[in-house]
Design a binder for these strands. Sequence first.
DNA 1: ATTTAATTTTGTATTAATTTCAATTTTATT
DNA 2: AATAAAATTGAAATTAATACAAAATTAAAT
Lengths: 147, 147
Amino acid sequence: MKMTYTIVELRDYLKRHDIKPSTIRIKVLEYLLNNRIHPTADDIYQSLINDIPTLSKTSVYNTLELFMKKGVVNALSLKEKELRYDINTYFHGHFRCEICGNVYDFPVSEKIIAVEELKGFVIRNVDINVYGICKKCNEKIKNKEEK
Amino acid sequence: MKMTYTIVELRDYLKRHDIKPSTIRIKVLEYLLNNRIHPTADDIYQSLINDIPTLSKTSVYNTLELFMKKGVVNALSLKEKELRYDINTYFHGHFRCEICGNVYDFPVSEKIIAVEELKGFVIRNVDINVYGICKKCNEKIKNKEEK
DNA sequence: ATTTAATTTTGTATTAATTTCAATTTTATT
DNA sequence: AATAAAATTGAAATTAATACAAAATTAAAT
Ligand SMILES: [Mn+2]
Ligand SMILES: [Mn+2]
Ligand SMILES: [Zn+2]
Ligand SMILES: [Zn+2]
């Protein structure tokens, strides 16, 4: 794992979002900032359990719940049983590869929902979820076919 | 429930989609065509249990699974615990109201995902999910505030 | 029409992600 | 140091969805 953030930076990041910086919260935030793979709660738990042997899964859920409430993360509901979490809260779309399971980001214009049918509606959140085969996996398939 | 479809029409609808028309499948299809509310599996079960007292929930799940495989319905994963099902398989977006829970359809251009970042990706499915407060609920809130 | 095979449906048990919540531990305040 | 507040833990509960074998229904073969 890349070590890109100092403890001071992480603490400030939380404080800026009105979150008291506990050890677990700092560790979860650090993981999210350094591993931008849209991890599940279990991904986070499995990665931190070595560092914090007493860590409970409930704490991970509690932390993510708090992070969501404070706008630090967004939850992704991608037709999987587990939710994923995204530290990048800027508006963007997600592509999930059916083969490798990776989730890719891509840019989308937010004005796609500027339609007559939604006049008078209050929009809080927009999710753009695309499913298919990613470039890498697709190229692998093509190479196999050539042989 | 509106009675808009004859049994012959329902049977043909299933046959056209390569599905053997059993009693349960016809009833589930009829429900989906007449109740375009993006129902959950349980919504469907609760509505049919009066007609078919021996109906099991597994049969509803089996039927929906088959309908999905054959392209008769799409599943909607809308940040709720239960999946919803949509008989309208034409490309469109969904708006879920946080207050009344209703899910509204709205048109979207499919070319929103024609971005450089997805070149070489095979796109199988696109979901546009919007969350907020619907027009009706918003007007109710406004009226209360005025008083 | 009867037997046999294939399909559909049922009901029970299982799975697994998430939630609940009281007890414990840690941190802050007096 | 004592007390209060907040955070964390761990075990139990929840629940939508799945697995699967038995039962029921339907279709095919004799
Ligand atoms: Mn993302
Ligand atoms: Mn719809
Ligand atoms: Zn891939
Ligand atoms: Zn509403």
